[in-house]
Amino acid sequence: MPHPHVVIIGASSGMGHALARLCLSKGYSTAMLARRTAPMHALAAQYPDVPHAIAQLDVCQTATIPEVLQSTIAQVKGMDVLVHCAGYGWVNPQLDFAIEEGMIDTNIRGFTAVMDWVFHYFQQQGKGHLVVITSVAGLRGDRHAPAYFASKAYQISYLQALRHKAHKADLPIYITDIRPGFVDTKPMEGRRFWMCSAETAAAHIFKAIHQHKRVAYITPRWRWVALAMRIAPSWLYEKVM
């Protein structure tokens, strides 16, 4: 069975970069997109015999998304899987709107523009697999990072809606919601409980893609935190958090 053609948005660092490395190491035709291209070029140079494409993309520049995606997909001769790793998260207890706005632009406006274009692409193709890195944070609001938690809730709900659309259209378009807990990426300072490396996260994401999972927690034990977040009464959640 031929390898799928994988497109990764947000492949310059963190989980996206680690997943791109894993895909290239498996010989998968891999398209990598992000604002910074240098890390992706350096990674691709390590796998010169594997088909790949690299493009600069800032999802906040929503008008550029269709052209950049179409051109990049053409270079690798198709897209079977789209992994959306582009995201922005920051602690903002002071409610600095400039910080909130950045997360809204990336995690909501940019995310939605990508989702709509890719879903239409898969509709026309008749199949496809859409994978998005959301977060356990999307399950409940939090005083430390209101826009981040809220934007991740938006993403989770949007993916549920797209899954419903695919089901009603009777199309084999798979939607996988990846919900990490703490992952050791650049914005994260210090050690946190149950923190895993970007490479460990990528391995779990890769497995979830192959299993066509609807929802996958990274690492799997975060499902217990998610359960606690969902069932905790408001008074307890507000007291603990």
Rank of each mutant, 00 (worst) to 15 (best):
V83N: 02
E101T: 08
Q70C: 02
M103L: 07
G87A: 11
M79H: 01
L95C: 09
I108N: 02
L95T: 06
A74C: 06
N107S: 07
G87Y: 03
A74K: 12
W90Y: 11
I104F: 15
L82S: 03
N92C: 01
T72E: 06
A63R: 09
A74S: 12
A86F: 03
D80Y: 05
S71F: 00
C60G: 15
Q94L: 07
D96V: 12
D58Y: 04
S71R: 15
L82F: 04
I108G: 05
L95R: 15
W90D: 11
I73V: 12
D105S: 12
Q70D: 14
P93Y: 05
V76T: 15
Q56A: 15
E67P: 00
P66W: 00
G102F: 10
G89T: 07
L82Q: 02
I73Y: 10
T106L: 09
H84D: 03
W90M: 13
S71I: 00
Q70W: 10
N107T: 03
I73G: 05
A98K: 15
V68G: 04
I104N: 03
Q75D: 07
N92H: 06
Q94G: 09
G89Q: 03
M103D: 07
Y88A: 06
S71T: 13
V91P: 00
Q56L: 07
W90R: 13
G89A: 08
D96T: 07
T64C: 10
V81H: 02
V81L: 00
V59Y: 00
N92V: 09
T64M: 10
T62M: 04
G78I: 11
V76Y: 05
I65S: 05
F97N: 03
L95V: 08
C85Q: 04
M79F: 03
V59H: 11
T106V: 15
G87R: 04
A86W: 01
T62F: 04
V68K: 01
G78E: 05
D58W: 03
I99K: 10
E67C: 04
V83G: 00
A98G: 05
Q94P: 09
E100A: 14
A98E: 13
Q56M: 08
D80R: 07
T62H: 02
N92E: 11
K77T: 13
D80Q: 08
L95S: 08
M79D: 02
C85P: 04
Q75M: 10
G78N: 09
A98T: 14
V91W: 07
V91L: 08
M103Q: 11
G78F: 10
K77P: 02
V59T: 14
G89N: 11
K77Q: 15
T106F: 14
I73C: 12
G89H: 01
I108D: 05
T106H: 11
V91I: 15
P93F: 12
G78Q: 10
L57F: 00
A86K: 02
D105Q: 15
V68W: 00
A74T: 12
C85G: 04
G78R: 08
A98F: 01
W90V: 13
Q75R: 07
S71K: 14
G102A: 06
P66A: 05
Q61M: 10
V91Y: 06
G78D: 13
E100R: 03
Q61K: 13
D96E: 14
Q70T: 15
T72G: 01
D96C: 08
D96S: 04
V68D: 07
Y88Q: 13
I99W: 00
